[in-house]
């Protein structure tokens, strides 16, 4: 009980401190911008710990963060195996294939304004559809192993990426293209030196959306059949056998991987599109 009260007090103290920082003149500091959310996250984890142990919540319902961390540390071998199966083989393969294919096709159809006008509304519509539902069909086509997961990911990331790239390629205005023409630049030169760089913010937007979709696709596809490894497999069997702490450890892995993937794409975006207003400091 004391832990519960203690954690609540800590959480409120952290909030008050964040309030102080947010209203102080140093608030735009890089350190402050990172410090504030990180401390709040830590305090929330501690509050979770306090609530679970203080109120005596059964670990079958919600394990404490310390239990999850202990399970995480004890079962790194299983977690690594699942990580390789789901993320490296399923999600990343599909992500690379799907995004590359969408990018290449976007550049190709961009040459014809007819195709662009025809494909853009359809692509926009398909991007809004619940494509994850296609997972069981693809699992029955490509078998239980990671190939079917990669296929689901390819289908899921393809349309958001296509739509964003096509939109990005249309970003340059007539003035800029005219300038390239006065330089006697050919199609390829205009594409490489003007239109692709201008499209990069959109391309990276698509890549970021696709990075979260890739993990979702790979995990959902495993619910429909997988070899006896993989994050989705472990989660669905773990829920069934009530080894909830292992499930939470997998969720932690998924969260870390998702954040790292997104962060990685954002970092590359920062390097590539340093000139864009949204990246300037």
């Amino acid at each position: 009980m004391t832990l519960l009260i203690f954690s609540v007090v800590i959480w409120c103290a952290v909030w008050a401190m964040n309030r102080q920082i947010a209203n102080s003149p140093d608030r735009d500091d890089r350190a402050a911008r990172i410090f504030v959310p990180v401390v709040l996250g830590g305090a929330t984890l501690f509050l979770w710990e306090g609530l679970v142990t203080g109120l005596g919540v059964s670990p079958v319902i919600l394990p404490a963060p310390s239990d999850i961390a202990a399970t995480f540390a004890a079962s790194t071998a299983i977690l690594w195996e699942d990580f390789v199966q789901t993320v490296l083989k399923g999600a990343l393969t599909g992500y690379v294939i799907g995004c590359t294919a969408a990018f290449v096709i976007a550049v190709l159809i961009d040459r014809s304004s007819f195709l662009t006008r025809g494909l853009l509304p359809i692509g926009n519509f398909v991007a809004a559809l619940p494509i994850v539902g296609i997972a069981p069909i693809l699992v029955s086509w490509f078998g239980f192993d990671w190939q079917s997961k990669a296929a689901v990911v390819v289908v899921m990331v393809f349309f958001p990426m296509l739509v964003n790239t096509v939109q990005g390629l249309r970003e340059t205005d007539a003035m800029q293209r005219d300038l390239m023409r006065t330089y006697a630049a050919g199609y390829l030169q205009t594409l490489v030196k003007l239109r692709l760089p201008a499209a990069m913010p959109f391309v990276f937007n698509g890549l970021k959306i696709a990075s979260t979709l890739a993990l979702i696709g790979a995990i959902v596809a495993e619910y429909f059949g997988s070899p006896t490894r993989g994050m989705g497999f472990r989660i669905s069997t773990g829920v069934g056998s009530l080894s909830i702490d292992l499930v939470w450890a997998e969720i932690a892995v998924a969260a870390i991987v998702g954040t790292l993937l997104y962060g990685g794409v954002s970092w590359i975006e920062k390097v590539v599109t340093f000139w864009h207003p949204s990246q300037r400091r």
Binding site: W15, N18, R19, I21, A22, N23, R27, A32, R33, V36, P37, L40, G41, V132, S211, T212, L215, I216, I219, V220, M231, G232, I235, S236, V239, I244, V247, W248, E250, I251, A254, A255, G258, T259, L261, Y262
Partner: peptide, 27 residues
């Protein structure tokens, strides 16, 4: 309206979307 919300909640809102929700769905 609140700077402290902006600084401490917004980053977590972004991170929450990078977590594959389907992993949480059975939970």
């Amino acid at each position: 309206h609140s700077r402290v919300m902006d600084m401490s909640v917004m980053p977590w809102a972004i991170i929450s979307q990078t977590i594959p929700i389907v992993a949480l769905a059975p939970m």
